[in-house]
């Protein structure tokens, strides 16, 4: 049967998905701009690249957020999720992951802004 969302993974590491996407996006933007400016490559290319990378990163974070939302039971239960059961632990993980997706989304948008406003390599 076809599922829109993949099977649920039970791991500590899913918590870090969105911040890792932020980190990859950040590094890519910085390295691309630094390289282009050091080598005299047209910054317009970099700005296009940043736009593409931002779209991909934001898309990834949205998907991660949807998975987290599902893990959080689509918001069916309210925090604090402090019962000693596996279910509550999963809800907690889902909620914390969702919060991190929100923060990472905002941070990726922050990182894209320099490429909107700066068009050259002036020091």
């Amino acid at each position: 049967m076809f599922h829109l969302l993949p099977r649920e993974i039970e791991s500590l590491w899913t918590l870090f998905t969105a911040p890792v996407i932020w980190a990859a996006h950040f590094l890519l933007c910085y390295v691309a701009a630094a390289f282009a400016c050091a080598r005299g490559i047209d910054l317009a290319l970099v700005r296009l690249g940043v736009a593409g990378a931002t779209a991909v990163a934001l898309g990834g974070i949205v998907v991660a957020g949807m998975l987290a939302w599902r893990q959080w039971g689509f918001g069916s239960g309210d925090p604090p999720h402090d019962e000693p059961t596996r279910k509550e632990r999963l809800l907690f993980q889902g909620f914390a992951t969702l919060l991190l997706c929100g923060l990472s989304f905002a941070a990726v948008v922050f990182e894209a802004l320099p490429a909107v406003f700066l068009a050259d390599c002036r020091p």
Binding site: C29, C37, E111, L113, P114, A115, L118, C121, P123
Partner: peptide, 17 residues
């Protein structure tokens, strides 16, 4: 240190975030 402004701006954005 004289790095291009666009490089600085990426770090400025993260510093605000």
């Amino acid at each position: 240190t004289g790095l291009p402004q666009i490089s600085l701006a990426f770090f400025s954005a993260a510093s605000e975030a």
